[in-house]
Every structure is written in C-alpha cells, then in structure tokens.
Computed example of a mutant assay.
Amino acid sequence: MKSYSLLAALLLAATAECCQNTEEIHTMLRAFSEECAEEKETELSKGELEDIFSGKCPTNENAKCVMTCIAEKSGLVQGNQFSFDRFMESANKTFSCDQDTMKKVEEVARECERDIGNAKGDCEIGLKVCECVWKQKK
C-alpha cells in the first residue's frame, strides 16, 4: 500500500491492495497531523494520533479539527466541502496500478459527494469524510 494523503488512510480498509507502502502513509500523516495540531493550537494524545493513522474517525473536537486540517492539506476538502475531483486526483496517484481498486474508490467518492454536502462547523467536514468512507466499507 502506498500514498501521500489522508485518502489512503481512510480507504485502506475499503479497498484492495494499492501501489505504495504503509510507512509512506504514516510518515505523511504524522507530518500533516503535527502541522495541523500546531496550526489548531491543540495537542492530541498518542492514542488519538494512532486512531487517525489507522483510519478511525475522530471522537472529540480537537481530533475532528486535526482530521479536517489533514483532509484540507490532502486536498480532499476545500472550503468545508468534499471535493470529488481532488479525491479522485489523489486516488489516481495512489491506486492507479489497480483498476478494481480505482472502481471501488470512485464508488466511494460518488457516495461521499452525494452524502456529505457542506459541513456546519469548522471541524465537521473531516469527520464527515471519515464516516462516509467507513460507511461504504460495510
């Protein structure tokens, strides 16, 4: 598995094998999470960070804000809105070696585009993207 974005972390459980390695995912997520925690002037526990790395959806406001920031830095959301085009652009860079995976990713992205809409609070969109992706896994 290989990626540079939150997309991969969120879709790991919803898709088949992809092209890059897990360590790259964790390295990028750690960098984004540290930047975001600093920008949001918050600290996350080791457990909260591990939850984000493993694709679990955040449960408290600080973690939601960090998740939203990571989603923004990854290009998955813009202006409190899910971005189908950016989602697919990230997916193509990450999963293009596997057409079956790309089909599943596109299905997930279309469902999320339809279900998410605009977020009400400043930190809700990251949570909504996470919940949508996990819902599609079921």
Rank of each mutant, 00 (worst) to 15 (best):
N21I: 10
N21D: 09
T22L: 09
T22K: 08
E23G: 07
E23C: 10
E24Y: 06
E24K: 14
I25E: 11
H26R: 15
M28H: 15
M28Y: 08
R30W: 09
A31L: 12
A31K: 11
F32Q: 15
F32P: 05
F32D: 15
F32R: 15
S33F: 00
E34T: 13
E35N: 12
E35H: 10
C36T: 04
C36G: 02
A37I: 12
E38H: 08
E38V: 15
E38I: 15
E39I: 12
E39D: 14
E39M: 10
K40T: 01
K40D: 05
E41W: 03
E41C: 04
T42A: 10
L44V: 01
E48D: 11
D51Y: 01
D51G: 05
I52C: 04
I52H: 00
F53W: 13
F53L: 14
S54C: 03
S54G: 00
G55S: 00
G55E: 02
K56I: 04
K56W: 00
K56D: 06
N60D: 11
N60V: 13
N60G: 02
N60A: 07
E61F: 09
N62Y: 03
A63L: 00
K64I: 03
K64N: 09
C65P: 13
V66P: 06
M67Q: 14
M67S: 13
C69Q: 06
A71L: 08
S74C: 02
S74Y: 05
S74D: 13
S74L: 08
G75I: 10
G75A: 04
G75H: 09
L76I: 14
Q78N: 13
Q78E: 15
Q78G: 02
N80T: 02
N80H: 09
Q81A: 12
F82N: 01
S83K: 09
F84V: 06
F84I: 11
D85I: 06
D85H: 10
D85E: 11
R86Q: 12
R86S: 15
M88Y: 07
E89Q: 15
E89F: 07
A91F: 08
A91M: 09
N92G: 04
T94C: 13
T94K: 07
S96C: 10
C97R: 06
D98L: 02
D98W: 02
Q99A: 11
D100H: 02
D100V: 07
T101M: 04
T101V: 12
M102W: 04
K103L: 06
V105M: 09
V105P: 03
V105T: 03
E107S: 07
V108R: 05
V108E: 03
A109N: 04
R110P: 01
E111W: 03
E111D: 05
C112R: 08
